[in-house]
Amino acid sequence: SILESPNSSVTEIEHLTQNVLKSYRETCQLRLEDLQLLRLETFSWEEVRSYQKKSMEEMWERCACRITEAIQYVVEFAKRMGGFMELCQNDQIVLLKAGAMEVVLVRMCRAFNSENRTVFFEGKYAGPELFKSLGCNELINSIFDFAHSLCSLHFSENEIALFTALVLINSSRPWLQEKDKVERLQNNLELAFKHMLRKTHRESILAKLPPKGKLRSLCYQHMEKLRSFRQMYPIIVHAVFPPLYKELFS
């Protein structure tokens, strides 16, 4: 097991890398080729207007459903990743509760077109104005800015796989019971990521990666917005929001 030996060999790191890449390929939700092919499919002005005319409740519910779908793939990614299921269940829950949304935000850069500042949403590419009825313009713009900045790194699929594994396996999350075990897995993933970047002459991106605080701040803003929405529409949240979404963010 990758978690048992204090010093992992190159072969073990290579094995972990292959395992993370495979887990990612199997759980990436949308194929990059398909997302690229659809890049020119943007919502028409009428379609954007129709989204803008939806009630705040309906738009929130739609977004909560799309986020929940994306999170289910992240849970599956974690489960297939070497070492994750060897952690105690408390720590699996802590890591997913804190990191699943962060991984979704990083994965979003694959579905983002920097050229026209649009993101793939419900079948076509949408600009930030489509989400107007949510009443969270500042948060939406921050998320778009974040996706734009990540796109400038030109991540490969393999880089996203290892980077998101590191977003998830973070030993500084509060309430971990077996911090040492998480730390060992995190160290091995860091070695795997750096080893891969060295092989592909991409070490320069290490200095350009988003700071951990940036992702944390976006997730915090999302939870704050949900809190305000819940105060206005407690019954909607209770009755129609996906249970997994409520469990993670309420």
Binding site: E76, M85, N90, I93, V94, W175, E247, L248
Partner: peptide, 17 residues
Amino acid sequence: LQEKHRILHKLLQNGNS
């Protein structure tokens, strides 16, 4: 924690889907 996160707990207990 597991008690408060029953769905996540269930997803983690299920085998690979």
